[in-house]
Design a protein around this nucleic acid. Structure first.
Lengths: 251, 251
DNA sequence: ACCTGAACACCGTTCAAGT
DNA sequence: ACCTGAACACCGTTCAAGT
């Protein structure tokens, strides 16, 4: 009876909204399913902004307030969702040990960037919203397992521990900086696109801006191309190389 | 009469909320004042999240809907606010021309970072929310003036234009990556602090994580110290130095 | 031209109540 | 123990109306 009532109330929303017409029987709702549904929403068209408690409840065929039995607040849910995202990220990062350290780094961070670009939801949750530290002990453990492996590779290549740590983190910070840039640039484009506008092109007459006018040909807006990303990685790896040479051959 | 009514309605909110008891007379409201008040709100305790149309209207002593005469939407207002923020940023960045290029870069980006750390509002508006490109032609002009100067300094030091552009952007992306990290880390700490909790410290036994356990002493959470920031800048500048040597002395 | 309040659809969260 | 709807305070935005 209650089920019919609910179905009638939502009949105007089309078939997809009715996916859970037969409302969940008791005892079948749990944290995992809620997080999974939340991730589905976030990975969908609307992104992180499209995630709301009412929407999530509708997706699950459940009253909104039921969610609060499993999560104290939306923030609490977001934390769990971030865990889930971190889990997926770690599973997607390949292991390039065995190759020369510079090639290893280049490939690793190239993939690191790719994962975020291909999965905006991961980017929003892990790059834009939460620092690495705000995770459960479990997730932190996996994070440190990864670090142990990657920093170990650098140490083996001859970097003192401190430089190995700093090198990895520098590339990580730089890469996430690129990803942030690209993400913001894309959503700005999208938003303008909806309004039919174009990104304002600066009127760069070569008298007031001689260099920038000339640079236009090697300029990528928001530094957001693979080529530009690799230019930066190149500088950093060059720096590491000369540092490495300095250890064995001090002046 | 209407004024008394309004004052009575808000009497429970304390003195600061009443700052504009005598509601603004007609024709005195304008875009500049609205943006200024919005910036005040955003720079205040609550930050960007604390900015809402009703709050802003209250601050100005105006009906909420009045704001919509001057701004099509909140997004429209945010765009104007971002302009304002970019304006302030550019005014705060010092000119280090005349010094050696490497010292110039180090000092410039050290200040770049400082400005964002000292002004979280600028950070939220310019680093976390909008790409450089989504600005008015006017702001873009000022942005390119800055670029012209900074990239010019690198070109004078002997870098080909393309590398000069990439070098500046790499450091800019890296620096903003650091700022992002630090900002997220701090707000996570703050949020935990409100709940009385502490950041989860990973249980790093030195058997499963030999390197990370040893690295604990040279580890900064979220890479968020000045020292760590400069370590990364050091790598990049080293890379640039070796690149520069390669131009004049190719193998 | 400028400013208003009433109203709408949405949000996060609390609470007292049901089984 | 688990799930519910009613209710609250808040939000962005529209609209018809006032001067």
């Amino acid at each position: 009876m209650a089920g019919q009532h609910r179905a009638a109330a939502s009949k105007a929303r089309g078939p997809t909204a009715d996916r859970a017409v037969g409302r969940r029987p008791r005892g079948t709702l749990n944290r995992e399913d809620i997080v999974a549904a939340a991730f589905e929403l976030v990975a969908g068209e609307e992104g992180v902004d499209g995630l709301s408690m009412p929407r999530l409840a509708r997706q699950l065929g459940v009253g909104v307030t039921s969610l609060y039995w499993y999560f104290r607040s939306k923030d609490d849910l977001m934390a769990a969702l971030t865990e889930e995202a971190a889990d997926r990220l770690y599973r997607m990062l390949p292991d390039y040990r065995g190759r020369p350290w510079d090639e290893h780094l280049l490939r690793y961070f190239r993939d690191f960037r790719r994962v975020f670009l291909d999965n905006p939801a991961l980017c929003d949750l892990l790059v834009l919203r939460a620092p690495m530290e705000a995770r459960s002990p479990e997730a932190t453990r996996r994070f440190f397992t990864l670090l142990e492996r990657e920093i170990g590779a650098l140490a083996e290549a001859g970097f003192p521990l401190r430089d190995a740590v700093d090198a990895y983190m520098t590339l990580s910070v730089y890469t996430r900086g690129c990803v942030l840039n690209e993400r913001l640039f894309r959503s700005a484009e999208e938003q303008l696109g909806r309004g039919g506008e174009r990104m304002p092109q600066p009127d760069m007459d070569s008298e007031t801006f001689p260099l920038m006018a000339e640079a236009a040909m090697c300029w990528a807006p928001s530094f957001s191309t693979e080529e530009k990303f690799e230019a930066g990685v190149g500088f950093i790896i060059d720096g590491l190389r000369s540092r490495l040479a300095g250890y064995v051959n001090p002046l």
